[in-house]
Design a protein around this nucleic acid. Structure first.
Length: 350
DNA sequence: TTCCAGCATG
DNA sequence: CATGCTGGAA
């Protein structure tokens, strides 16, 4: 039996019933593939369902405000995916009659669409004979053909092998099946080789030590940075700002700043607020330390409860004074939700 | 508390 | 080749 047949037969029986597998609507498939980048299926499901309900097609995304889209993405992380999807939808609206292009070159030219997403969407939604190579497929293939190092040479070997194996009648199902195999059977830690449909020809399995494939790649150590932040109150309102940096761009947060020493945190916070808002504040008390990990650094945020002492800063495009009940109206990144969870009821005091 | 998974971009 | 996020397992 052909290898693709073994894999497809297995997939047809055990495949998970996921919301984005209900139909082959190209838009839906695309949304799911963007959300699934760097993100687990279980995390994606509620976001996907909500998104499809709110934004059922390309046009609805193109017409939406970025703030509104980010609000639906809030908590999912890697927010550039959302901003890029917005850009891509606008491009499709203007130049492609709101249709998702079926050609490789046109589709991969869109913001946020790389080799993986192009291959996945075109094969799954349009049955085009493209392979996909995500983390799951790499691991499965490294084990099956017995390659320990994911070197450039071996990646290329894997691609060539995949092209040979790809089921030309069901390329999308074949790709999904391979990823499903990686997610459910051929897992990184405890692969369930006994239940694997292709274990008889898997070199890693036959070697007795499938975990050796592919070899472990050490990660470089992640630095710890200290930040200071202020919950700056004026009556029943708190000052928030909209980020404009690359990281977390478009998301809202309480004013904060990276510092070198915890010792000077109060001064640094006061100076920062004066400089940016022409606002003098009175620091009431320390609220705690928020810990959060990003891909390339860990954050320790020293948080202070402050009241506005003097100065006027009116709400504008990138700064707002909001009541606690207005949190729902703005997209905040995770750290701020950790902060908000400190406050009970409708008050900005603990 | 630490470690790990996971694709696109400049 | 470094950067971008979060959740969940170890």
């Amino acid at each position: 039996m052909k290898i693709s047949t073994s894999i497809l037969n297995w997939f047809d029986i055990v495949k998970r019933d996921l919301p984005f597998r209900k139909n082959k609507n190209p838009y839906n498939i695309w949304v799911s593939e963007i959300m699934l980048q760097q993100t687990k299926v279980e995390t994606v499901i509620p976001y996907y369902n909500n998104w499809i309900k709110k934004f059922p097609d390309v046009m609805s995304v193109a017409k939406a405000e970025e703030d509104v889209l980010l609000k639906s993405w809030e908590g999912l992380g890697y927010y550039a995916r959302c901003r890029n999807f917005h850009k891509a939808a606008k491009i499709l609206c203007e130049n492609f009659n709101s249709k998702i292009p079926q050609s490789w070159n046109a589709f991969i030219g869109l913001p946020g669409v790389g080799e993986y997403t192009a291959g996945a969407v075109l094969s799954i939604a349009f049955n085009k004979p493209f392979i996909v190579l995500d983390g799951n497929v790499k691991r499965v293939m490294a084990r099956v053909i017995g390659r320990r190092k994911l070197s450039k040479y071996n990646i290329n070997l894997i691609k060539q092998t995949l092209k040979k194996w790809l089921d030309k009648n069901r390329p999308g199902d074949f790709n999904e099946a391979l990823m499903e195999l990686g997610a459910c059977i051929c897992t990184p830690k405890k692969p369930k080789c006994i239940g694997c449909p292709i274990n008889t020809l898997c070199i890693a399995y036959k070697s007795g030590n499938p975990l050796n494939y592919p070899s472990y790649i050490r990660k470089k150590s992640i630095p710890n940075y200290t930040f200071v932040g202020g919950v700056i109150r004026d009556k029943d309102k708190v000052l928030i700002q909209k980020r404009n940096e690359k990281m977390l761009s478009g998301l809202w947060e309480i004013p904060n700043k990276k510092i070198n020493s915890v010792k000077t945190s109060k001064n640094e916070l006061e100076n920062y607020i004066i400089k940016h808002y022409q606002l003098s504040i009175k620091i009431k008390k320390k609220l705690g330390v928020i810990k959060h990990s990003y891909s390339h650094f860990n954050m320790n945020l020293v948080l202070f409860d402050c009241i506005k002492y003097s100065g006027i800063t009116k709400s504008q495009k990138t700064y707002k004074w909001i009541k606690k009940s207005e949190i729902k109206d703005y997209p905040f990144h995770k750290v701020n939700h950790k902060i908000f969870s400190l406050f009970k009821y409708d008050y900005w005091t603990i």
